[in-house]
């Protein structure tokens, strides 16, 4: 009998493997997703010069003000950033969200021109010219967006452009819950 079971072993292994592969396909798992280790941890260090002339430098204090903060990395050369930009403008104007914008690997004059053209939703805007801050934040490219609660803990990390669905399902409830 055990001998017979032995002959069933290959079939069982196949079933197991095929099950996983089918699961992966059905669940629409994105093989390129890299996850984030930032969620649930205190926001990384922030120490940047301001993007706009005359503004004060950006520091950690911004992230521990007791109010939820949205941190958005962008660049003027980044096409998907164009797509999500109106959503941030609306979040700032309609919902009064505190949004920190960080221009990543961007010449400051180009980033400023970009904001002048498209509108500037950022209460604070910083410049991460050499990408060092991005690295500390576990950034993989732009755009990426972090939601940070009043105590300075990262609660969400969006890789890629934020969508309308993200705004209604995640960002708005997040802003409301913590106020």
């Amino acid at each position: 009998m055990t001998r017979r079971l032995l002959f069933l072993l290959p079939l069982a292994s196949l079933a197991l493997m095929a099950g996983f592969l089918a699961w992966s396909l059905m669940a629409g798992r994105d093989p390129a997703a890299i996850g984030s280790v930032m969620v649930g941890r205190p926001a990384p260090r922030l120490d940047l010069r301001a993007l706009r002339d005359g503004d004060k430098p950006l520091t950690d204090a911004l992230l521990r003000s007791g109010k939820p903060v949205i941190v958005n990395f962008f660049a003027s050369w980044c096409t998907p950033c164009l797509a999500e930009h109106p959503l941030f403008t609306r979040l700032a104007q309609r919902d009064g969200a505190v949004i920190v914008g960080i221009a990543w690997k961007n010449k400051p004059e180009e980033a400023r021109a970009w904001l002048a053209k498209l509108g500037d939703p950022y209460l604070y805007a910083g410049l991460d010219f050499d990408g060092k801050t991005g690295l500390d934040w576990g950034l993989s490219g732009v755009p990426e967006t972090y939601l940070i609660d009043g105590t300075g803990i990262v609660r969400y990390h969006f890789r890629g452009p934020v969508t309308e669905k993200d705004v209604t399902d995640v960002i708005i409830p997040f802003l409301k819950a913590k106020q």
Binding site: D30, A32, C78, T79, P143, R159, G160, P161
Partner: peptide, 8 residues
Amino acid sequence: VGRRWVAL
């Protein structure tokens, strides 16, 4: 594509 950055 999903929600990846097309351009990047």
